[in-house]
Design a protein around this nucleic acid. Structure first.
Lengths: 198, 198
DNA sequence: TCCGTTGGTGTACAGATGTACAGGTCTGGT
DNA sequence: ACCAGACCTGTACATCTGTACACCAACGGA
């Protein structure tokens, strides 16, 4: 196998002028990454292939290998994209959170959102999270992901509580995605409330 | 490793069948399943192949397909085996638990055990757990696994608390396996203590 | 206008993989 | 002793895979 050489200069030397020349589809790279996420959601990481991604993105096979030298590159970008999208979503959630509201209730709501309407995204994130276990480049992203989660929650309480909340949050997600029946909202809420010390 | 025969002209060369075959080996099926667990621990689910399992188990390729018609069969058995081994381990842990001891402390100890000495097993279990997401046959096993966990913990408290403890427990495991640094024992213990209502 | 450069694509190919299956070996019953 | 059937293994093969790379298309400077 070839060594993934993503950081060093590829066949494109640093042009001195404006790089806008001939860039006909700048979003394509991101579209492919998102298509990869879609494929993982549908068939799982272990069945992710260049061809399936190409089909899902509606681009020729050559495009996927053009933008991503190796399958691992594609996986890395997919996880980054998923993590970014997720953190973005969390920020919006946090922004809309009532300052004086009940945090436990809001967290329970969030859990149920991730297990209900956003279940597909949740499944993908966990797949990629687990896939990171054998890919050092991905571990970094995964760590940052749940560090961001802990810090977000810590903003409403303190560092230790924030961390504990993020752990419990991930736990609910993990146990939730293998069951078709959602957990009881009251149970979820109660568990968060206990962590918050009532 | 089998020697590749690239000089094939005849469809069936008269092999002399030197190896002793027909030797009964009732444990072989289980050995192969455990070898599959080993392979998953080393290379991840997405790279699990009949050949790697055969090599790890020290059996010919034909054996793996003889005992497990398809790769999914092998995965199912591997998850079952891992779950059984894990529940067995938990029972031993529970049996050795001091009746009047501090549950939060014991749980923290257990978490650190799973992230330290038993890290490889933990990683495998999570991989298989996630692999179950696209395999209905496996979902059942995964569900039973964390149901057993919740019930075990419930034995020391109540149903709702047991469930919450199992969720937090899974959460600590999940966040722990992507980091090389173990969480602080005090933090883990404190989180369990809060769930237990002090 | 023309042509070099860069972005993008179709196709080929070597290798790996799942799986079938013919054939060898041994056990147990008679 | 003998044989039928269960147990086990080596090998073949169609298929799928990642990836390389020759080729085409558009843009922009001259």
């Amino acid at each position: 196998m070839t060594t993934p050489d993503t950081s060093s200069a590829g066949p494109t030397p640093p042009s001195t002028g404006v790089r806008a020349a001939g860039q006909r589809d700048p979003d394509r790279r991101q579209r492919i990454a998102r298509a990869a996420i879609e494929v993982v959601a549908e068939v799982g990481v272990e069945k992710l292939t260049h061809r399936k991604v190409a089909a899902a993105a509606g681009v020729p096979l050559g495009s996927t290998t053009y933008y991503f030298k190796t399958l691992d590159d594609l996986l890395v970008s997919a996880l980054r994209q998923a993590a970014d999208d997720d953190v973005e979503h969390l920020r919006i959630w946090a922004a809309g959170l009532d300052a004086g509201g009940d945090l436990a209730e809001a967290l329970a709501e969030l859990v149920l959102h991730y297990l209900g309407p956003a279940r597909a995204e949740t499944i993908v994130e966990h797949q990629l999270y687990i896939a990171a276990l054998h890919r050092p480049a991905l571990q970094h992203v995964s760590q940052e992901w749940d560090t961001a989660l802990a810090e977000l929650f810590a903003g409403y309480t303190d560092a230790e509580t924030g961390r504990a909340l993020s752990v419990l949050f991930c736990g609910w997600q993990l146990q939730g995605i293998v069951r078709e029946q959602l957990p009881e909202r009251a149970d979820v809420e109660a568990s968060f409330r206990r962590l918050l010390g009532r």
